[in-house]
Amino acid sequence: MFEESAVIRWRKYTDRYRLIGNACKACGETYYPAKEQCPCGGKEFAAQQFSGKGRLLTFTEVKAAPEVFESKTPYVIGIVKLDEGPKVGAQICDANAGDLKIGQRVEAVFRKFYASGETGVLHYGTKFRPVF
């Protein structure tokens, strides 16, 4: 299965660890994850690092998870609107669904996602937590 691949996540380490997307050089629109072609027609982009500050648009608590996240259930997923514009689907950590509210401020943090099995590679990336 693809989750057992040590390599599959590697090519996005930088984007995931540091919230790096891109910005269209023609219209300035920013994207996370990075886009290949801008709706404005622009094809040239500059790397853009996002601040990680944003607002929670919607969220839910996952109780039935895919195999690699089974040991982490329950966990919260949500969609965050970054202050710079893009919307990002991400886990919301350090919180129970019951404590969260649509519209609340969240911030990016570096967290562990899953292990490719008992002896496999560990995968890290960015989640969001309520600002405290």
């Binding site: 919607t58 969220f59 839910t60 996952v62 895919p66 690699v68 996240f69 689907g89 991400a90 886990q91």
Partner: peptide, 30 residues
């Protein structure tokens, strides 16, 4: 659950532990 997440964006949503009930729950909340 894992297989069906192939219907979403594996690289970003799948990696984040999203599930289909989860995605539709996000839409329901919105």
């Amino acid at each position: 659950t894992t297989g069906l997440m192939g219907a979403g964006d594996e690289e970003w949503e799948g990696f984040q532990g999203f599930t289909f009930p989860g995605l539709y729950a996000l839409m329901a909340k919105a």
